[in-house]
Design a protein around this nucleic acid. Sequence first.
DNA 1: GTGCTTCCCTGCACGGCGTGCAGTGACGGC
DNA 2: GCCGTCACTGCACGCCGTGCAGGGAAGCAC
Lengths: 233, 233
Amino acid sequence: MSRRARLRAETSAEIKAVALALMAEGGPDAISLRAIAREMGMTAGAIYGYFATRDDLITTLINDVYTALLDAVEAARDGVADGDPAGRIVAWAQTFREWSLGNPEGFRLIYGDPVPGYKVPEGGPAPETGNRACAGLTGLIADAWPHAERLQPSDDAYQWSDFDPHLVEVTQERFPELPPAAVALALRVWARMHGLVSLEVYGHLRGQTRDPDKLYRAEVLSLVGALGLPPAP
Amino acid sequence: MSRRARLRAETSAEIKAVALALMAEGGPDAISLRAIAREMGMTAGAIYGYFATRDDLITTLINDVYTALLDAVEAARDGVADGDPAGRIVAWAQTFREWSLGNPEGFRLIYGDPVPGYKVPEGGPAPETGNRACAGLTGLIADAWPHAERLQPSDDAYQWSDFDPHLVEVTQERFPELPPAAVALALRVWARMHGLVSLEVYGHLRGQTRDPDKLYRAEVLSLVGALGLPPAP
DNA sequence: GTGCTTCCCTGCACGGCGTGCAGTGACGGC
DNA sequence: GCCGTCACTGCACGCCGTGCAGGGAAGCAC
């Protein structure tokens, strides 16, 4: 890599780092090209040499942050033995909530309307990273599937064509035996985790309960139970 | 009411109506004082006679929209006979999703980061309206509680002090027999509906499944089943 | 070493935003 | 019929994203 290219990569990385720092301290709205440039001793126009538009920068940030979240939950999952599917799900779920509460701006960036007028530009950031999230959950479900199967009396209600082709490809390659209903279950499990965490991050639980942690633990336990898994070996 | 007061109320209502119209056609970001004023043939400063600040206007809108959503789901619930708790829950859940998909901007307004730099101003809009939502769900749970009880082995794990005092007051008045665990269950049920709908509204399901409706129906059915209720009488 | 090319960055402009504030004019209450 | 209240305008300030012309340094070819 030439010196030019190296400098370029460094500057690009610094832009993203500064943007994340600004977001962490001032909320997602604090991400403005002018503020970033000010922080870096540049002018706003200079950033256009690195990102075609503000939304492009945001999109890149979303991918970075989403990747960080997935790294965290996957690491937590892999910290629990293969033979303990319930434990792996709980680890994933707990880390998902902890990361989200620790990085609320990141969560909003990924799952909400992050920034003033941000519109996903052409295809958006989600497909690939979102697929990774879904695939990770499908893996968890695959471990639990032998126990969970009885809860899915309508296996044949789902076809592979109900799902995104790329997601299907990845899933069938890694879990050839798994029926499409398992992917549906994975999505529903995802949503159950997302529901409580999302309400909490956006402050909707604050006016209702004083112990959202207890609530979440109960939900995760209930979820694991509903999968037919023993609570915690 | 004097003529002055009437004109004032009309103008105030028009501001809100125009704001909602702008939001409906151009997304939440389209709500700008200048745009509203332009639409009304005024200048932006004039609005400050009605709302102290832009965020005050937004807060009022949130309350209005939230109320509209609650009116819709409660009406749907009341369209099903008292003796059919499962049907009432399903009606609530289905209407919740349909309203949200039909008013995605409204959903974002209520449950997300609605608008550029909006910060909930002092106490925010949620407490009372959020309590109404939670109370409505608690009512649904109260109907189902005789069946659901066996699913709550840890009734004593929750105290009334775990919850918001106002919510507790309302709940205890309307359902004197209900234990605090039922409120926790109501919050979890809320979160299960919210999870899938939120993911769908924000487009995160689009890259995964092609039939989010089927997914949601399965989730609601599973939820009703988990409460120990017969599917659909 | 010299000259050319590439490319990063500045400076400025435009229009849009929320928000204050002085001034103006119409209307309601007495 | 006067006076005070009050809705509204016009303007200013400082933010914002985004284009564009131009300068200047760094890299490359000979």
